[in-house]
Write a protein that binds this DNA or RNA. Structure first.
Length: 430
RNA sequence: CGGGGCGUGGCGCAGCCUGGUAGCGCGCUUGUUUUGGGUACAAGAGGCCCCCGGUUCGAAUCCGGGCGCCCCGACCA
């Protein structure tokens, strides 16, 4: 992409209504623009990040045996009356009336809908287990939206739902999903920690929240340093993984148990702040019962399937990753989710040598390269590249260009190398 | 939902108290300059001063009513 032709409106000054780092940086880097309170438009570079995150989530869900589908954003109130949640949900639910005066709502979650869908098509225990998921926009009419995409009203979420014949099956699904979540977050270059959680409005009695460590996080977290080593993640057997993962202490401040905490050697005690980016729940038969989803078992008797639900805040992750990965100059994208893998900075636009090298690099990098071909001073290009946080900057100036050399800069570490064009490219692509 | 604050060119703000033909910085356009960390000079373009009503000879400014947005708290993926 050529920066001169892109819709990536970077801002030199900070918009006054952005309080925290990720919100400020997303606005300044031209990733998003607010369209209404808690509602954002995703501009090209922000949308690229969103898509990369979505893709990683998708791959890991598929890997865990879940099947992708897509449910609508608008739901019928009748569906929610079946479970009793239409009245229970409160003002966070955005209620809509259509021209025929029928009650609709913009979905805040999809338990009712998926249960009804599965109920209508699954009639035998032989068809279970099933784990459908989708990645769709949700709406919760928060009293007070804030922090940009971390706490918007409209947000993109991956939600999966498992249906099993018995508790053992549901538990196996739960464990498998926890493993998939940890792999998902690891691939995105962030440290996430699963913590025992309340089940809140969703229901059920077994639940974990996943928190990204970030100094600006909303909740205080306490955890055992054993999480930092990543040993448990190397475990490929689901049972062993789950055992290891859940035997290490980790809790948010609400669920912090000081007696348990005291048993951990002090040199391994870690306190910090976290942002919740996902939560998994064992639901039991709450919804299958409420919505009369019964099927015939091997013994010929009718039974209610055991359910679980599993959410990841996809749009929130964009903000959470930035909270965890930024400095005074701007964002520091992990390679896997960066909008562009490398920026090509032409320091002397119009110079035959620099133009030639830049065009060549731009072609070879394809869609993952962002070419700053604007008629701007070097300082402007440096500052903006740091702000946008590309993992690599390929700096092409007239001094090196005559000898076929460019400077490669790694955003995360500040390291620089003077390299031949092809060597720089190899390093970036490697 | 309680408490506080703000709406003035794209962005950040001043002007409002004490009514009198709308201003600054950044950005944008053109030219010159500069050429490896947000360059300098010059000339320009761009505004229903959030909306509606009232007071007044005259309202960005005073009064009333709306709407929007932000911050603190309670609440939440």
């Amino acid at each position: 992409m050529r920066l001169s032709k892109s819709l990536i409106p970077a801002l030199k000054e900070t918009p006054s209504d952005a309080q925290i780092a990720s919100h400020r940086l997303m606005l300044r880097a031209g990733m998003i623009r607010q369209m209404a309170s808690g509602i954002y438009a995703w501009l090209p570079s922000g949308y690229r990040v969103l898509n990369k995150i979505m893709q990683i989530v998708r791959e890991e869900q598929d890997q865990a045996g879940a099947q992708e589908m897509l449910m609508p954003t608008i739901q019928s109130a009748d569906l929610w009356r079946e479970s009793g949640r239409y009245d229970a949900y409160g003002k966070e639910m955005l209620r809509i009336t259509d021209r025929h005066a029928r009650d609709l709502l913009y979905g805040p979650t999809n338990e009712e809908m998926i249960t009804s869908l599965v109920r209508d098509s699954i009639k035998s225990y032989r068809d279970l287990p099933q784990t459908p998921y989708h990645i769709q926009w949700k709406f919760r009419d928060e009293v007070r939206p804030r922090f940009g995409v971390l706490r918007g009203r409209e947000f993109l979420m991956k939600d999966a739902y498992s249906f099993d014949v018995d508790y053992a099956g549901a538990l196996a699904a739960y464990k498998k999903m926890m493993l998939a979540y940890m792999r998902t977050f690891q691939r995105m270059g962030i440290t996430a920690i699963p913590m025992r959680a309340d089940t809140g409005q969703i229901g059920g009695d077994l639940s974990h929240e996943f928190h990204v460590l970030a100094s600006t996080g909303e909740s205080g977290v306490f955890y055992d340093a054993a999480f930092e080593t990543g040993d448990a993640l190397a475990e490929t057997d689901v049972e062993l993984f789950y055992q290891k993962m859940t035997s290490i202490y980790a809790a948010t401040d609400e669920k912090h148990d000081t007696a348990q905490w005291a048993k951990i050697p002090s040199e391994r005690q870690r306190e910090g702040r976290g942002i919740e980016i996902g939560q998994i729940f064992y639901l039991g038969q709450k919804y299958s019962q409420a919505m009369n989803f019964a099927i015939t078992g091997a013994d010929g008797q009718r039974f209610f399937p055991e359910m679980g639900c599993y959410g990841i805040g996809v749009s929130r992750l964009v903000g959470a990753i930035i909270e965890a990965r930024h400095d005074e100059a701007g964002i520091i994208w992990p390679d896997a989710v960066a909008p562009y893998r490398a920026a090509i900075l032409n320091l002397r636009q119009g110079d035959a040598a620099t133009d030639g090298i830049c065009e060549n690099l731009h072609t070879q990098l394809g869609a993952d390269g962002l070419y700053d071909d604007r008629e701007e001073r070097a300082g402007v290009k440096f500052a903006e590249a740091d702000l946008m946080g590309h993992p690599w900057q390929i700096i092409v100036g007239p001094r090196g260009a005559v000898n076929g050399l460019v400077e490669l800069k790694r955003r995360a570490t500040g390291e620089r190398w003077e390299l031949a064009v092809q060597d720089a490219l190899t390093k970036v692509l490697g």
